[in-house]
Design a binder for these strands. Structure first.
Lengths: 148, 148
DNA sequence: TATTGTTATACTCTATAACTATA
DNA sequence: TATAGTTATAGAGTATAACAATA
């Protein structure tokens, strides 16, 4: 039996992907826990946060942006409307479409939860020097471009 | 090297997390598509691949490694046993525990699918130099340790 | 005819929590 | 009392399909 002196390129790639997945999943789990303390799920928060920056989008646009089906968006919106955070408004120019808006309660919800979400991310990434964080982001951007 | 004046450390952290999530989700989506061609889900493949390298683990150990709950593992195993890929064997020394093993069909399934999975990951990460991939992994390890 | 949104079915994955059997 | 596994419930996502209203 022969011990490898150094890992070959393929092993490095495979282990890096495993590490990427584990890092993402751990952070995501923490975020889910933080959001649960504010009684909101990750999917719901993502939708509210998207509307916070892009009010007036249609359901179809939202589905494409969040990379889920329009049926999923429909069900999610049902729950968010029931919670009083989102309203569907008929598009005046296209009667088939809805324009999505946050209610004042929805806006308050985002503004209440977003600081906790952001603080968690910032606190976790503080283990890296700013220049290292920039390096990490750059490497991830290149991998994402390759995976498109 | 001088940092940009207008992008503060917090913004860098938040954007890096968004980038981490996008990169993970894009790669995961590709992997899911590849696995679907072989009629297996990602969760099921992850479990089979883990057993392939660590046969004889308990359900609890598997849950901790895969970062999911034991209830989750239980349901997954039900489906995998039904598919004929996995068997639960009672631990001879601890009657509460099961030791998990691949069946010969399960081993054949892993060996059929793993090369396609690995090739996809390797191909995607080939956009980075080996030293850059190692850097990426090191940064991710530190972030994961912080998120534990 | 094509598109937007809705409804329906069926399955998978995940977390929580209560439960059993055993240590 | 603690642990390994099971079960039940619930939310969320996937995929598909049909459907109405509108473009």
């Amino acid at each position: 039996m022969q011990l490898p002196i150094h890992e070959d390129t393929e092993q490095i790639a495979l282990r890096t992907w495993v590490q990427l997945a584990r890092t993402f999943l751990r952070m995501q789990r923490r975020i889910v826990t933080t959001l649960a303390e504010h009684e909101i799920t990750l999917a719901q928060f993502d939708l509210l946060a998207t509307l916070h920056h892009s009010e007036g989008v249609t359901q179809q646009e939202l589905a494409e942006w969040l990379l889920v089906t329009k049926g999923n968006i429909c069900g999610l919106l049902d729950r968010l409307e029931r919670a009083g955070w989102v309203s569907r408004r008929p598009d005046v120019r296209d009667a088939r479409a809805n324009r999505l808006h946050l209610t004042s309660e929805g806006r308050a919800k985002v503004q209440a939860v977003l600081p906790h979400h952001d603080a968690l991310v910032i606190r976790t990434l503080q283990c890296l020097q700013p220049q290292e964080t920039i390096t990490l982001r750059g490497l991830l951007e290149r991998v994402e471009a390759e995976a498109e």
